[in-house]
Amino acid sequence: MRLTFHIWRQPNTGAPGKMERYESANMNPDMSMLEALDVLNEELMGKGTEPVVFEHDCREGICGSCGFMINGVAHGPQSKTTVCQLTLRHFKDGEELYLEPWRANSFPVLKDLMVDRSAFDRIIAAGGYVSVPAGSPQDANALLIPKTEADRAMDAAACIGCGACVAACPNASASLFTGAKISHLGLLPQGQPERNERALRMVRQMNGEGFGQCGNIGECEAVCPKGITLENIARMNADFLKASVCERPKSGAAEDAA
């Protein structure tokens, strides 16, 4: 199987980049997209060309490391599939593929197809947790959680933080990512004590990182490899609205606690 690749090459964040064209006849329909790049890279190195840099780790669709645009679609044509599990069966012999990195101001390109998604970590650090020190909890079954609630929390918690939502959004919004974490914890009783504060801090951090607004158009949902839905964004909006209305001026006691 033969494929032509047009791949974004950029040596580092500050340097300009451009699309380069490569061809390989050693493709196999059973390969994953990342294995195709492995093969291409071996060929490039044989010719003394530096290999294409792309992020990857588990290669089974769960770590969230991999991801790039294939012909203008985040993670490529198969729904609910990351590029590491996308096989070449979805492409035709002789097809031309355009591979570009996630593009967002908040995701600077580090090299080629690799971007810096640390903004996501900072959004979590701003409040995407339950404050519980090791050793203090009660017995796990002392807290009853209806199965339906737990299942919905799990639906939201399935987010792998790959960044496809940002990449696919015309506004480069991180609402699906942030909404998923706010929903995951907000749907569970454990998340209630910090629910308002969490919504305020995470949404503010998301805004501070420079992501764009949510236009409610659903491109993020369509490319999300874990099927996270727009419902989670609505929940974030609701929590943020409520928390903003209820927010009280910081008192001395609150400062002590902080």
Binding site: M19, G72, V73, E100, P170, I217, G218, E219
Partner: peptide, 9 residues
């Protein structure tokens, strides 16, 4: 993007 293909919107 050089290529952008909307999926659902």
């Amino acid at each position: 993007y050089q290529k952008y293909t909307p999926q659902t919107s």
